[in-house]
Simulated assay, not measured.
Amino acid sequence: MSSTPYLDALRKDGFVKIPNLVPPHLLLALKASCKYTTDRARQGKWPYVRTVPKQYPPWQEWKPGDNIWGVQHLLHPDMGVKDIFAEIYFSDEILSVVKELVGLKDDPHGDEKLVMELFNLLVSPAQQQGFELCWHRDDIRPEVTPEEEEKLLQEKSPAGQQLHAQYNIALFDDASLIVVPGSHRRIRTETERAAAPHEPDLPGQLVVELQPGDAVFYDSNILHRGIYTGIDATSELGRMTLHGSVGLAGHGNERARQVLQHAVGEWVGRAQFSMEGRKGERAEGMRRRLVDMGSGKDLGYSLVG
């Protein structure tokens, strides 16, 4: 059997689903923390949100009347329940998978090469009208030529491996992510190039169905989109899915732009975590390596819209 089954699946399909990755006791705490955090964000008591219908950063701070589809900066020093979020973000369960995916599985100093990046929450819009993301790759704009697309795909996954790992962790049932398996390794077909931004039935597409505690790690340049079904927030919880990324140190402005466009550089310098021992040392090292990436000013944005 392969010693890197998760990496093998990621290379082949562009995603790998891992059932029951979150321990039951932590899943319960995360559900409560995310409900509390989402309620506050919908009331304007947490300003860092993703608002309907904007798909990509920069996002504006919450204002009355906004309908949100995401809550930003779960590790922010002003986030009241950040220690619960830090427990899963810096956990062995998550980072053991990350290290396999970025080539550090057998490296005894692997922790010292990881970089804290993004940790956010994806939620259902609190109105009956839903919201859909268009088909995209996270860091390749749709208007590029086939030649440029091929060049960028090779640059962003040298030797078939990305310099970061990103994931969704479902806290409740989730069937929002739609992917085209294998599309992370090739340019778009003519059908994909000509498809409408919200094409509902792209050839080969697959809905990634997650149950509470399941995770999906995916290549950021797989063709994918998301569907956010609207809910009545007075009686429904809807979708609450953690969305995170962890990087590999030492790769300059290219990765810095992708991370710092989310404004995490504005507060990471004063972030603190209450964990002790090895996990606390790992968290501080990862935080410090993000600080070393800078503030992100003048680096621009990956996508527009």
Rank of each mutant, 00 (worst) to 15 (best):
L118A: 09
L118Q: 10
D138S: 14
I140E: 00
C134P: 04
E143H: 12
P146S: 08
E143N: 08
Q127L: 07
E147P: 02
I140S: 03
L133G: 12
E132L: 07
F119W: 08
K156A: 05
S157G: 08
P125K: 04
E132S: 14
F119E: 04
T145E: 10
F131S: 02
V123W: 01
S157A: 15
K151T: 10
L133D: 13
Q128R: 15
E132G: 13
D139S: 15
E150P: 01
E150V: 12
E150W: 03
V123S: 02
R137E: 04
E155C: 05
L153W: 01
F131K: 07
E132H: 10
V123Y: 02
R137L: 04
R141A: 15
M116F: 10
E132Y: 00
P142W: 04
K151F: 04
C134E: 14
T145M: 02
E149I: 04
A126F: 00
K156N: 14
L121S: 04
Q154C: 09
F131D: 05
Q129W: 00
S124D: 02
L118S: 11
L153E: 06
N120C: 12
L152M: 15
D138M: 07
L133R: 01
P125W: 01
N120P: 00
L152T: 01
Q154H: 08
P125A: 10
Q129F: 00
P158C: 13
K156Q: 14
A159C: 13
D139W: 06
Q128W: 08
L122C: 12
F119A: 09
Q154M: 11
G130N: 12
V123A: 05
V123F: 00
E150C: 06
R141E: 13
W135P: 04
E150Y: 02
R137D: 04
I140N: 01
E147G: 10
Q128Y: 09
V123G: 01
F131E: 03
G130C: 06
V123R: 02
L152N: 06
Q154I: 13
E148Q: 15
K156V: 03
R137S: 11
W135V: 08
L153N: 06
E117H: 14
Q129D: 15
F119H: 14
L152I: 01
C134M: 11
S157F: 08
R141K: 11
L133N: 08
T145V: 08
F119M: 15
M116T: 13
Q127Y: 02
L153P: 04
F119C: 14
T145G: 09
E149P: 00
K156G: 05
E143A: 12
L153R: 05
K156Y: 08
D138A: 14
I140V: 15
R137W: 06
D138Y: 01
R137N: 09
D138E: 12
S124G: 08
E143D: 15
H136E: 02
R137M: 11
A126S: 15
L121T: 05
K151A: 14
E147F: 02
S124M: 03
C134I: 07
Q154G: 11
N120Q: 11
K151L: 13
G130H: 07
Q129C: 07
L133S: 13
E132P: 03
V144K: 06
C134K: 11
E150T: 13
L118R: 05
Q129M: 12
H136S: 04
L153T: 07
M116G: 03
Q127V: 15
K151Q: 12
W135D: 07
V123H: 00
Q128I: 05
P142F: 08
E147M: 09
L153K: 09
